[in-house]
């Protein structure tokens, strides 16, 4: 009983992150709208960031900015560095994806996946 409680208390954080991740994955694969897919991928990406940051957290720790006070516990700075750069790279790639969607909308007149595929099929069968 105690072991089960310890497992839940120690891992609930990771499981909540997994739930968020799966909602993001669901939005990305179940929806045909391209903008919605990008938002879903963003949710997924942010959840991955949370998983990384969770792993760097130390119980009773504080932010890794050295204060000079003795016996201070700091959380692990390495995941923070990796995720910090990943966030800014994430926005750049999101902007690139949105730019491609804008061009798709101009070329096909729609941003729904199935309608684009239909237009593609029509063009293919005519030629």
């Amino acid at each position: 009983m105690d072991a089960a409680f310890a497992l839940i208390a120690g891992h609930a954080n990771y499981w909540l992150v997994v739930i968020l991740m799966m909602i993001g994955l669901y939005v990305a694969i179940a929806r045909g709208n391209l903008v919605k897919k990008i938002v879903g991928l963003n949710l997924f990406q942010t959840s991955v960031f949370m998983l990384y940051i969770s792993m760097g957290k130390v119980e009773g720790g504080t932010a890794p900015i050295l204060t000079g006070l003795p016996a201070t516990v700091y959380s692990n700075p390495l995941p923070h560095v990796l995720i910090l750069t990943a966030i800014v790279v994430g926005i750049s790639t999101t902007a690139l994806a949105l730019a491609l969607v804008v061009r798709i909308r101009e070329a096909y007149g729609t941003i729904e996946e199935d309608e684009i595929l239909e237009i593609e099929r029509d063009v293919g069968s005519k030629s």
Partner: peptide, 23 residues
Amino acid sequence: ALDAVDVAFTEAAVGGGVSTIFM
């Protein structure tokens, strides 16, 4: 809450601000 203040700063500025504007 997870001690990652630099990351929180970036996420608030990027995700909450610029990302929404691009969207």
